[in-house]
Simulated assay, not measured.
Amino acid sequence: MKVVIIGGFLGSGKTTTILTLGRLLGESGEKVAIIVNEIGEVGIDGDVIMRYGFETKELTNGCICCSLKRDMKYTIHQMREAYDPTYILIEPTGIAFPLQIKGEIARMNMDDVEFAPIVTLIDGTRFKQQMKETKNFSRRQITDAEVLCITKVDLMKPLYVPIIEASVKQMNPSAHCMALSMVTGQGLDELIERLADESVDRADVILDQDSIGASGIATHARSYVIEAPKLDEKTATRYVTDVLLHVQGKVKGLNPDFVGHVKLTLLHPDITLRASITAAADEPSIGALDAGPNDDPSMKVLIAASNVPWESLAEIADEAVSRAGENHCIRTTHALHHGHRH
């Protein structure tokens, strides 16, 4: 069984990359299982991945490189016994240290387990802003990697890609650096070829470090019950857009240069949407997913932002959902919430 760790900061494209790799590996005859780690009690990415038919386990309310180590160990053993995958793809939270995750799995001393080179994704569209806001933390994620992927290059001017590559190579000269786009497919074959290699053991692994505290990221996750028996795509799209823009505006008021991830899923028998923004100046990204016939009408919201007070995020989430609901006649009630104070 091969373990593939796809790390990277919040909003760098981990879920989309994991889905694409899982599909391509499956088409080549591999049995793929996926572990998704969310920082709050409310899982969002797992909802998305499960709809693509993968054997998926979502670990929430912590980080698998620190507070959820035991949960990760149990999950891997359970997957091996029940499903016997040839590949386990791991998507850590965006405020995890990838090398620490590898070290914790290696501690389990499981037979017939090998590691692909550790991958860290770097969002090229906000690299400068991310390094300004989370310099030391992002540097650690970069130096943990054996493969560095500059993502979203289809949204960048071509001349900026080699500049960012040169910057990250200065921080980690031994890593393989490449450009990657899930839109055009650029770099996919190269990445799969790299994952066929084996990870190199390192002596500088620091275990038992609190990556969440080191990140400087405040997070809050909340789930809402939607009281709307019917919901068309146009209304739903406007509604989630209003939620995202309201959150973005309020967080910008606290930190005009924030980076992070504001993301949500809206689940409804009529329409299912996935939406996000990743920085203060980002435009909302919204996509439709296949609606599940048994979906209870609900919405999950995660706010993760740099250098803002944790205490403000719950109020921001509630206000955004309430005001968007008033604008579009959609009533909601609270279901569950969880946050991290940093």
Score class of each variant (00 low, 15 high):
residue 322 S to G: 00
residue 82 A to I: 12
residue 94 G to T: 06
residue 129 Q to K: 15
residue 229 P to L: 09
residue 113 V to P: 12
residue 257 D to L: 14
residue 303 I to C: 05
residue 77 H to F: 09
residue 284 P to H: 07
residue 95 I to M: 11
residue 52 Y to N: 13
residue 87 Y to I: 06
residue 321 V to E: 07
residue 46 G to A: 05
residue 204 D to F: 07
residue 86 T to H: 07
residue 52 Y to Q: 12
residue 16 T to Y: 00
residue 333 T to I: 00
residue 269 P to Q: 10
residue 76 I to M: 14
residue 203 A to Q: 07
residue 208 D to Y: 05
residue 260 G to H: 04
residue 90 I to P: 08
residue 92 P to H: 06
residue 13 G to Y: 03
residue 235 T to L: 11
residue 21 L to S: 08
residue 99 L to C: 00
residue 66 C to P: 02
residue 335 A to N: 11
residue 94 G to L: 06
residue 87 Y to N: 10
residue 107 R to V: 01
residue 24 L to F: 00
residue 199 S to E: 03
residue 171 M to F: 09
residue 101 I to E: 04
residue 141 Q to M: 10
residue 339 G to M: 03
residue 227 E to R: 05
residue 36 V to W: 03
residue 318 D to N: 15
residue 232 D to M: 10
residue 119 V to Q: 07
residue 262 V to Q: 02
residue 135 K to C: 09
residue 301 V to N: 01
residue 153 V to P: 03
residue 19 L to A: 12
residue 166 A to R: 15
residue 339 G to I: 06
residue 189 D to E: 15
residue 316 I to A: 06
residue 194 R to Y: 14
residue 229 P to W: 03
residue 98 P to K: 03
residue 228 A to P: 00
residue 197 D to R: 11
residue 2 K to D: 13
residue 219 T to A: 13
residue 274 R to F: 12
residue 119 V to A: 08
residue 92 P to Q: 07
residue 68 L to D: 01
residue 223 S to Q: 12
residue 336 L to R: 11
residue 70 R to S: 13
residue 273 L to G: 02
residue 136 N to M: 14
residue 141 Q to K: 11
residue 319 E to H: 12
residue 126 R to I: 14
residue 160 Y to W: 14
residue 50 M to G: 05
residue 177 C to G: 08
residue 236 A to Q: 02
residue 335 A to D: 15
residue 247 V to S: 00
residue 275 A to N: 01
residue 249 G to Q: 14
residue 110 M to G: 07
residue 197 D to M: 11
residue 240 V to E: 04
residue 267 L to N: 13
residue 227 E to H: 15
residue 164 I to G: 09
residue 340 H to Q: 04
residue 272 T to L: 03
residue 257 D to A: 12
residue 216 G to F: 05
residue 274 R to H: 14
residue 323 R to D: 13
residue 44 I to L: 13
residue 43 G to I: 06
residue 285 S to H: 10
residue 57 K to P: 00
residue 227 E to C: 02
residue 130 Q to F: 01
residue 163 I to Y: 10
residue 190 E to M: 12
residue 260 G to M: 03
residue 317 A to T: 15
residue 208 D to I: 05
residue 219 T to D: 09
residue 209 Q to H: 11
residue 248 Q to M: 06
residue 112 D to H: 15
residue 291 A to F: 05
residue 302 L to F: 02
residue 69 K to Y: 02
residue 147 V to K: 06
residue 196 A to T: 06
residue 115 F to I: 13
